[in-house]
């Protein structure tokens, strides 16, 4: 393939990767930003979102004979709500009792990771299952073809991002979240129910992961082990963007997605992953606040 089309494909792939990363990292960033909790189970919320999407869309198509688009929309509503509810229960039963102590919550969320993953294995089984895309359209370019749905995912990620940004910066809920993030004790003194904010934020983070999963699952498969890969990558994204900085997360997702997409088209993807992981680790070592984060107080 000639260099031009090669680069075009790499860019598409990079943007898709960035979109998926944004979708998964957004929730992680929110939870860390507001609650200072490193949620290792985040990838499992993503996986849960995909698996529930499979259940909902299969149910809709087999019970009512509806087309895939209806099942997709139903999944887009049901899946985040279900995942959010599960996350909230986990937060109330476990994280709250730990007082959000950083190290204990890491251990607890590792535990939650296994509980969610293995429960899905028990109920849903070990197979990768396909979820039909709401539409199937293949764009034929002179050099290669590309899935129209992939481009839809990129656009959807951008829209979702705008919505989150709007909620955080222009609404009362967002104000409360930002106040809690800035200084939880003072916020509490001003009558903000920190407790409820925390469980809301934790649920919201999980819901964002689930929405991302519903969008992504038609181009991947729903599988009980699918949560591990996005977890590592979204960690990397959140860190390089600066823990808790939304803007940084997005820029980092673009940076990592595009560079990974492009590097791995030209070189071995394993090598690309090695180099990017190493670079990110070194960023964290030499610039612990991330590229865009404020210095930790």
């Amino acid at each position: 393939m000639a260099f031009g089309p090669f680069l075009l494909l790499a860019t598409f792939e990079g943007l898709l990767q960035a979109a998926i990363l944004t979708l998964t990292a957004l929730g992680l960033s929110l939870v860390f930003g507001v609650m200072r909790v490193v949620n290792v189970a985040h990838g499992e919320f993503y996986m849960l979102g995909a698996v529930i999407a499979w259940w909902v869309s299969t149910f809709v198509s087999s019970m009512f004979g509806m087309p895939p688009a209806v099942g997709f929309i139903a999944a887009l509503i049901v899946s985040p709500l279900a995942v959010g509810a599960i996350a909230m229960v986990g937060e109330r039963l476990i994280l709250k009792r730990l007082n959000y102590n950083p190290e204990s919550t890491i251990v607890a969320t590792i535990g939650m990771l296994y509980i969610i993953q293995q429960s899905v294995l028990l109920t849903y089984g070990p197979d990768a299952r396909r979820v039909a895309a709401p539409f199937y359209y293949r764009i034929q370019l002179p050099w290669f073809g590309y899935s129209g749905y992939n481009l839809f995912v990129i656009a959807a990620a951008a829209v979702l991002l705008l919505i989150v940004w709007f909620i955080l910066s222009r609404t009362r809920i967002g104000l409360i979240m930002r106040a809690t993030q800035f200084d939880a004790e003072t916020a509490q003194a001003f009558g903000i129910p920190i407790d409820r904010v925390y469980s809301l934020v934790f649920a919201a983070g999980a819901m964002l992961a689930a929405i991302g999963a519903v969008l992504v699952v038609p181009i991947r498969q729903a599988h009980y082990l699918m949560g591990l890969d996005p977890l590592l990558l979204s960690f990397i994204t959140v860190i390089i963007g600066g823990l808790g900085s939304l803007r940084g997360t997005v820029i980092a997702a673009l940076l990592i997605g595009l560079s990974d997409g492009i590097i791995s088209v030209f070189f071995s993807p394993t090598l690309a992953k090695m180099i990017s992981t190493l670079l990110v680790a070194l960023v964290l070592v030499f610039k612990p606040e991330g590229l865009f984060g404020a210095k930790a107080r």
Binding site: P5, L9, A128, F144, Q221
Partner: peptide, 30 residues
């Protein structure tokens, strides 16, 4: 462990007569 494959496809030379593939694992459909 790969879950996405499009990035590998441009490496298939244009003069290829036969594409020989063998994949395993949960991502084969992808």
């Amino acid at each position: 462990t790969e879950t996405s494959f499009t990035r590998y496809l441009p490496r298939i030379p244009a003069n290829t007569d036969v594409l020989y593939h063998v994949m395993v694992g949960p991502s084969v459909l992808t």
